[in-house]
Amino acid sequence: MSVPDPLLVEELSTSPFAAGWPHRIVSEVVPISRQVLYPAGSIIFEQNAVNRDLFLICSGLVGLDMRVPARGNVRILTLAGGELLAWSALLGDGQMTATATALEPVRAIAIDGSRLSDLCQHRPDIGFHVMTRLAESLSHRLTATRLQLLDLYSHTTPHVLTFGAREH
């Protein structure tokens, strides 16, 4: 195995994903990671296609779109630097649930999902760190999705600062 790219090591160890990990664990993940670049407008992966990489976005904006019959692509979320993309590469069968598009030039670290999965299985210490960060990320995403679901700015729910005293 070649000498790890020092930039990749730096990028990974300072990312929110690996922040605080012992160096030995970062160094185990580096060999299965690589830097990737996507120009603005390019597709990172398509809905229903198989993708084997877990992405850690370093910079740029990624749009996640889902295809809805008769509505076309609906953008459900955008992701930016520090956020994880394509959990299904690690947790599922690699079939993507949405299409990811680079809305700006995107720089990311791609981690080989099946090799990371193997690593987690054989090295519970690594597995714990990886899965904790993944769970945190999922938890944040779930909370954000719930907030979206609440439709807080809808006109039919109480609002802040229209101050409707005795308004009927």
Partner: peptide, 9 residues
């Protein structure tokens, strides 16, 4: 009930 009425709720 109306005492605490605010913007539809």
């Amino acid at each position: 009930l109306d005492f605490s009425y605010m913007n539809g709720g």
